[in-house]
């Protein structure tokens, strides 16, 4: 049962709006550290250079440069970070997209627009209840 304030969560979305909304929700629960990246490429750099491990990646699917699926694949393929929890954000419940993400080891998905509650629900489904 992880403590919210020991968690480091990375939010990846090309929209600042979505990142800010997620950050606000995460801050409300006292998540220790919230990182942001605007696309998969930036996210990878953050993941690989951040001093402490990142516990959860919440990433949009459709982004320029490097999309969510590519990010997921890159994370899963890289030993030291391959176990990082991953939640995919999607605009619509695009079944095909979710299925391919599952195939590559996504831990859950969340349909946008999300509420703070639905976000928390998904996070808890992935890493256990937050305290």
């Amino acid at each position: 049962m992880p403590l919210a304030n020991t968690l480091t969560i990375l939010v990846v979305d090309d929209q600042q709006t979505i990142r800010s909304l997620a950050r606000m929700a995460l801050e409300q629960w006292g998540v220790g550290e919230i990182l942001e990246a605007a696309d998969g490429e930036e996210a990878l750099k953050v993941i690989l250079t951040h001093k402490t491990p990142i516990h959860l990646i919440i990433s949009d699917y459709n982004m320029p440069n490097m999309n969510g699926l590519s990010l997921l694949r890159a994370v899963r393929a890289h030993g030291p970070i391959s176990k990082t929890a991953f939640i995919m954000l999607t605009g619509r419940a695009d079944k095909q997209m979710v299925l391919s993400a599952v195939e590559h080891g996504v831990n859950n998905y969340l349909v946008k627009p999300f509420t703070p509650e639905s976000l928390r629900e998904k996070i808890e489904a992935v890493i256990g209840a937050l305290k």
Binding site: P53, H55, A85, K95, V102, V126
Partner: peptide
């Protein structure tokens, strides 16, 4: 209507991933 409708993924089960965070606590 679309957002509310069943996405047809109800049968997908996602297993919680305790691994990652345990890694944190045993670190």
């Amino acid at each position: 209507a679309e957002d509310d409708e069943d996405d047809g993924l109800g049968d997908l089960t996602f297993l919680p991933l305790p691994v990652a965070v345990e890694a944190e606590t045993t670190r």
